[in-house]
Design a protein around this nucleic acid. Sequence first.
DNA 1: TGTCGCATGTAACCCGTTACATGATTTC
DNA 2: GAAATCATGTAACGGGTTACATGCGACA
Lengths: 201, 201
Amino acid sequence: MDRQDAYPITYGVLGLLAFLGPMSGYDVKQAFDVALTPIWNATHSQVYTELRRMADLGWVSMQRHYQETRPDRKVYAVTPAGHTALRQWHTRQPAHGLHMRDEVLLRFTFGAFADPAALAATLRAAIADHEQRVAAYQANQACLPPTPVGDGAPPAAATADGPDPFFSEMARFGLLLEDMYLGWLREALASVEARLVLAHT
Amino acid sequence: MDRQDAYPITYGVLGLLAFLGPMSGYDVKQAFDVALTPIWNATHSQVYTELRRMADLGWVSMQRHYQETRPDRKVYAVTPAGHTALRQWHTRQPAHGLHMRDEVLLRFTFGAFADPAALAATLRAAIADHEQRVAAYQANQACLPPTPVGDGAPPAAATADGPDPFFSEMARFGLLLEDMYLGWLREALASVEARLVLAHT
DNA sequence: TGTCGCATGTAACCCGTTACATGATTTC
DNA sequence: GAAATCATGTAACGGGTTACATGCGACA
């Protein structure tokens, strides 16, 4: 039933579709950006590919919505087989753990070979970048989706409405990470700047 | 002089070589594992490829050390051109920021579609995994390399011996990250377990 | 008039991973 | 004797990114 051809990103798309209800590839990409940015990224290119792949697998069904003024929307919905696949994913351990890349930190690590002024510039840019992320996360946190009920068969989730607890916790993770990162960046910048001042005297 | 063909991983290899002195591809891979794991990973396959690429660019030179009992070691050393490239890297802003993937968090996010017991199992495995990382980082932290002096021309770095301050700070980042992550995981597990107990009553 | 947003895809490239390949020595 | 370590590479595959391609409506 479930072949080798399902990757984390496949489940990302499938999960969003199951969570937020039927939508177009364009909308899935938007949802990825607002909801999953802290932990996974996707390009629209990937999203469209995965949707077609899953349609072939029978995990999603497509319905074309004709529009005159705009290109047609292709609305995808999770099928029962798709829901089964999504549930089975959770029992297929182990999941791949954290995998990160960060060129800023790589540069910093080899800071001994850098002009301190250049290093400081890199760090300041990184601080601005991460501050922007925090702002974006906080904005997104305001409109977290509620847990879907019924059709998707989410088992035994607390039916009290309000944002889905799992999404909330994940969003909190994103903010914790950025908090920690920004704190570290500011300390790192301070130490580099101290070094800069020393070099001038 | 510096073409389009230098990626973060290129500089990772180059930096380690500049930092730790001439060594073989095998050693570079080891160094990657002990020193850079928190922020960047490399396979031995990549390392050998990058070394050859950089040799073609003139950034490193190779000297074959004949051995009778073992396969020959090919020891690579950074050339002056290599040092120039390394220094120039720091002024080529902006650097790519944090890019992370985490299947555990992705699963958690869609926890509404999971059997709570399965989710708990995933989280427990993740906790064990990250605890192991912390142990490894702490062991590695004990043997941080000192800042090289002289030949590599690291400009104006405090010549007081002891571990390199940039490497130390980076290692601290790794531990901060794992700390934060483990804290979050434990809270997440607790909330899932609470849900489990509720489901049983 | 030009760019941004909506809306959908395809094609190429490439970094990164996995697997293939070899072979001696040390350790259990 | 089997497995792990030292030591070096090549080949294939594949997920992810970037660029190509199209076209209308709205807004400045």
